[in-house]
């Protein structure tokens, strides 16, 4: 269960952004790929605990899914794949490279100003 450690790293970044803007956090948007090694459900549970007492205390965590995709080094085709079978969907070769699926990214933080509400 390394999701708590990852959550703390996430909250450190998010709190830094909130401090810079003197704001509180209303929403945190992240991407967790199937090959990132992180379980989204465990990350959600960890976030609910770890956010207590931080600028993200009342924030919502939105986890975006992303498909596993590979590019074939033999035939050049791009295709979706499963996390445990990264084979080319066109020719079946295993000589592929991952083009997405291992992301563990902080996409976006939505902030609410405590004093002046900012209109976008």
């Amino acid at each position: 269960m390394h999701e708590m450690a990852i959550c703390q790293a996430l909250l450190e970044q998010v709190e830094g952004i909130a401090r810079q803007h003197s704001a509180t956090v209303s929403l945190v948007r992240i991407v967790v790929g199937p090959l990132s090694g992180v379980d989204p459900r465990l990350l959600e549970s960890a976030f609910a605990l770890a956010r207590a007492g931080t600028a993200a205390e009342d924030s919502e965590l939105v986890i975006e899914d992303v498909a596993v995709r590979v590019r074939c080094r033999s035939c050049g085709a791009e295709s979706t794949a499963s996390a445990k079978r990264l084979l080319c969907g066109t020719c079946g070769d295993w000589h592929t490279e991952l083009t997405s699926g291992d992301e563990l990214l902080l996409l976006q933080v939505e902030l609410s100003r405590e004093i002046d509400a900012v209109t976008v």
């Binding site: 990852i6 970044q13 083009t99 990214l105």
Partner: peptide, 30 residues
């Protein structure tokens, strides 16, 4: 960190009264 596979996730509109800060950085940057 934007790849053809995840580019559609990168930009989103936000509701009124909030500011969106796009980060698009690795969670484990530290």
């Amino acid at each position: 960190n934007v790849t053809p596979g995840n580019a559609e996730l990168a930009w989103r509109p936000v509701p009124h009264g909030t500011t969106a800060v796009d980060v698009l950085g690795r969670l484990l940057a530290a």
